[in-house]
Every structure is written in C-alpha cells, then in structure tokens.
Amino acid sequence: MSTQGMVEGKVVVVTGAGGGIGRDIALAMAREGAKVVVNDIGASVSGEGNDAGPAQKVVDEIKALGGEAAANTDSVSDVVAAGRIIQTALDTFGRIDVVVNNAGILRDRFFHKMSLDEWDAVIKVHLYGAYYVSRAAANHFKEQGSGNYIHMTSTSGLIGNFGQANYAAAKLGVAALSKSIALDMQKFNVRSNCIAPFAWSRMIGSIPTETDAEKARVERIKQMTPAKIAPLAVCLASDVSADTNGQIFAVRNNEIFLISQPRPVRSVHRSEGWTPQSVAAHALPALKASYFDLDRSGDVFTWDPI
C-alpha cells in the first residue's frame, strides 16, 4: 500500500461494490489509502436474491493488497438497512468520510408496458437508496465539519434512452438530489458530485448482439472497463478536489466530461401578457429554433471511445 495515498486514512462506503464499477472504485480507494466498507447484497442485475459472497470477496482482495475493509450486505432500498451500512463504517473504523452511491438494478421495459413493480423497484434502489444512505451519513458529516458524496447518475436520465423510464427518472433525480445536498451542506464543508459512467458491466450485458454491427458495438463498449471510472471517483473523494462541488461528470473510456446543467436558452416576452392564441402564434414559433431533439445518449455520444 502507498504510504501517502490521495485518500489516506479516509473511511469510504461504496454501495453495490461486489462487482463492476463499485468493485473497481472500492479497490482504487483502498490502493490510495482509504479504509473501505464494501456494501453489496449479492443480487442479480434485476435485484433478485442475495449472497454475501461478492462483498466478502472484494474485502478479501483489499486485504490482500494490505488494505483495510469490511463487508456489509444490507439493502440500500430499506431505510433501516441503509442506516446499518453507515453504522458498519462507524463500528469498524470509527468514522465516515465518503459515501459512494453506486448500487443499482435495471428493470428495462417500454413505458406503455412498464409495471408498477418495475417502476417501484428501480426507483427504490437508485433514488431512495441514494437518499437513505446519504441521509444516514449527513449528521455525522455535519458534526465533524467534513464529508463527501459521490453519486452515480446516467446519461439515460441526463439525455434519454429507450425503455428506461424508471431508471432515467431515478438517475435524473439523483443528479438533483446531489445538487440539493451540495447547496444545503456546503456550510458544513460537505461536498456532493455526480458521475455518469460509461462502462461494460452486468447492467448493460443484455445489449443484443444479433448483427455484426451490434457485435462490433458491444466489443467497443467492452473497452470501457469499470476501472476507467475509479480515478475520477478517488480524486473527487480526496481533499485535492475541495473546490469541486455540485458538479456532474461523465467518464467514457479515457474521456472525462463536465456535463451541462439546465439553464434558460431562449426567451420571448410580450408586455401585454400571453393568451393561448399568442403563445401559439408567437411564443412557440419563436422558441422552436432552439427546441431539443428527441436524443438518446447514443445520439449525443456518436464517436467511438478511444
């Protein structure tokens, strides 16, 4: 282990860290000197089942590196269980410095076919989960006058995608949650930022590969390993990035993006006010040149990752 890592001595909770992006973030944090709580319920991509194995396996990997880690198998989607995740950090390491909200599931379905259960399950894990775990740490952060949140959002929410109303709504909600935390808690020296990761993982392993073009696309995506996300997460967790707060980043292979946040792009004004008819005759035609296309993430990120 390095004697002076970027997050030396910090206690970091990483949810959903039994595999994929979470695992690589947990390992990278440990390599840079953090003590890590590895949370994972060991469920399938759709959230079914539980297995203590994945979390413990990552803990064993960290200990093999000479680091310190503890496993936790509580669900982020239950408020009491989420509290136990943070309590594991306090009981094991005596404090909490960084929360990485990474746990997630998918229940993809076109909107007109989506069931209440498919909506509920995804919102519960991504949005409620990020809130529950963040809230459980908030008072500790306030009392110690420091703390750091890193949330995983998605271009499915920031931009759009087919068949993911539940996931997209949750992930855009996470971005707003992060900004609200940043605003409310900056006076306590607490920061909150988001990362939208592009990475090959179990969660996108169901992409169809029936045509040569689809197979080629999947091979390109596979270059975007979860390990590519970890350097930004570690840097955001460190004191080096003390002036970075309330931001949204994306990572795609070797690219790091700062993502825009909604701002007015054009306006129209009538001193006498508006009627439905004048909105139709004047406002919408004047604004139409600045309308946004019905983009999906892939329409915006059109070039191959390098």
Rank of each mutant, 00 (worst) to 15 (best):
V38K: 05
K35G: 01
I207Q: 07
N193Y: 01
R23N: 02
T3S: 12
P226A: 04
M1I: 08
A213L: 13
M29Y: 13
G47W: 04
N139A: 13
C194H: 06
N102F: 05
A289D: 13
G173R: 11
V218T: 13
V265E: 11
E219V: 12
M1T: 10
A280G: 11
L172E: 10
A34K: 05
S260N: 13
Q261E: 14
H282E: 15
G20F: 05
T88R: 14
A121N: 14
V76Y: 09
W303Q: 13
E48M: 09
V99P: 06
N161W: 02
A233W: 05
H282P: 00
Y132S: 04
S178L: 07
V234Q: 09
K179D: 06
S2I: 15
R107Q: 13
V12G: 06
M6H: 10
E32F: 05
K35F: 09
I105P: 04
K215Q: 15
V45P: 11
G83Y: 05
V122T: 15
L287P: 08
T15E: 05
F111T: 14
A175F: 02
R266N: 10
N148R: 15
P264H: 10
V58K: 04
Q56T: 07
I41T: 13
S44K: 14
T92A: 10
F111A: 12
K288R: 13
G83Q: 08
V12T: 14
V38F: 08
Q4N: 14
H126A: 04
R135N: 15
H112I: 11
L172Q: 09
I96G: 03
E32N: 13
A64F: 02
I85R: 03
A289I: 11
Q164D: 01
N166R: 10
M6F: 09
E143T: 14
A165D: 00
Q4E: 12
E143Y: 00
D295W: 14
